[in-house]
Every structure is written in C-alpha cells, then in structure tokens.
C-alpha cells in the first residue's frame, strides 16, 4: 500500500472534489489507482492531472468516494497502483467526449489541438469547462446548461472526419451510444470503460467483459477491440459475479 500527502482539496461542483497530492509514480493518461478508505472500502479512481503533482477528481456516490473526496491538506491518501493500460496518444486533432466526471481522466490528454464534448444530466454535472478555451460543446439531458439533449446531439453538430482520434469516458451506456453512432464511420476511437472492480490486478474476474479484464487489459479499449465484444453495453457483472443486463 502506498501513501501520498494531500496538498490541497478543490471543490469542482456539487459533490465533486479534486484531491491534490505529490508522488513519484509515472502515470500515463487513462491509468487508475485503487484508493483505500480504511475501514470502509477500496475504489478505482483515475487521474485528472499527472505531472509531479497528481490530481484525482472524485464524485461522491457512497461512503468510500465521500471519504476520499473529503481528504484535506495534511491527510494521507492510501492507494495501490497505478494500474491499467493507458490511452494511446496519436498526433493530430483530438476529440474528448466525457460524461459527468468521465471528463476527468481525459483532461491530461488536452493539447492545443483538442476539442471537447461534456455531457451531463443537469448543469450541476458539468465540470472542467475551464480547460477547453471554448473549444467545447456542452449538452445536458434537461437543457439546464448548453444544448438540450444527449451526447449524440452534440456529436451531430461536428464533422467527425476532422478528428484523428476520439477519446471517450463515462458510464458504459453513454459509451455504447457514442460507439453505435460512429461504428459504421471510418473513425478512430478509444473508450475507457468503468466496471465494478474488486482487485484491480486481474485476479477476481469481477470487471470482465468477453473474457478480458477491464483492470489489466483495459480500462482503455480501441473501437476495433470493442467490435469483438458483444457484452459491451449489453451485460455486466455484479459484485457476486452474476451477469445482468444493463
């Protein structure tokens, strides 16, 4: 178990905080840690900033995410990792597509040739707008901020052929929507998947999709890989290992 001294805690939005710390770990965009909330749980979290200073951005769902999101200067973050296969960075024009906090692990990919789409249920879910210098579409389910609609509403306003690579992160249903929209176009894309993870090191089978482990073979998969995975966006595993439909 590693530990890192917390330097700062930034409130990003409703129930979303960024925890800032410093470690020597070399992190590549898309990789994650298993963050330990002692006596509570251990959860996978990605990096939203990966220089000497590191940041993780956490949305509060339950007890463990609440504990991590509330770590303040002087506290320690306990974790293991980094784990997982990172995004493959290709030169050229990038489109980042993030739903809610799904935009967080995409932030380290930003360069001066990047465009973004951030989607959310409502205005409160939209974070990290500031990193995009207006090269960005925002879309909310209820129209309370940006366009009114879903991620495809924003995709339809762009000429996707302009982009050399699409990078997407968010709930699997949203990723499937993006995938279905582009699967018959000649477009390069990588998707970062979220599944329940108990070990993070490829032993417990709880994160598996078509025989691949999201924690070690992923979390990033190319559109080509996903074309051979019929479980994508269709079935997932519960903590018990039982397969259920989305």
């Amino acid at each position: 178990m590693k530990r890192a001294y917390i330097i700062d805690n930034i409130t990003e939005g409703k129930n979303v905080n960024t925890v800032v710390f410093s470690t020597d770990d070399e992190i590549k965009p898309g990789q994650f840690i298993m963050a330990w909330a002692p006596g509570i749980n251990e959860i996978p979290l990605s990096f939203s900033y990966i220089n000497k200073i590191k940041k993780i951005t956490v949305k509060i769902y339950g007890e463990a995410s609440e504990y991590i999101a509330h770590l303040k200067r002087g506290d320690y973050l306990y974790y293991s990792g980094p784990y997982g296969k990172p995004f493959t960075i290709v030169p050229g024009k990038k489109l980042l597509i993030g739903a809610g906090t799904g935009i967080a692990p995409l932030i380290p990919l930003i360069d001066d040739n990047t465009y973004g789409i951030i989607s959310g249920k409502t205005a409160d879910d939209i974070i990290f707008e500031r990193y995009f210098n207006n090269r960005l579409k925002i879309v909310t389910d209820d129209g309370s901020y940006g366009m009114n609609g879903y991620v495809t509403t924003a995709l339809k306003t762009l000429d996707l052929n302009e982009f050399d690579m699409l990078y997407a992160c968010g709930p699997e249903i949203m990723l499937k929507t993006v995938y279905d929209y582009i699967k018959n176009m000649d477009i390069n894309a990588q998707f970062s998947l979220e599944r329940s993870m108990k070990c993070g090191i490829g032993l417990c089978d709880s994160c598996s999709i078509n025989g691949y482990q999201v924690c070690t073979d992923g979390p990033v998969f190319s559109i080509e890989q996903l074309k051979n995975m019929d479980e994508f966006g269709r079935t997932r595993l519960q903590y018990s290992g039982k397969r259920i439909y989305f």
């Binding site: 490829g202 032993l203 089978d205 078509n210 025989g211």
Partner: peptide, 10 residues
C-alpha cells in the same frame, strides 16, 4: 482466479 465468468474461462 479468473474463473467466475464463462468468457474468461474460455
């Protein structure tokens, strides 16, 4: 070890 799921075992 990686044998709770049919696809992984396969």
């Amino acid at each position: 070890i990686l044998d709770e799921n049919g696809y992984t075992m396969e």
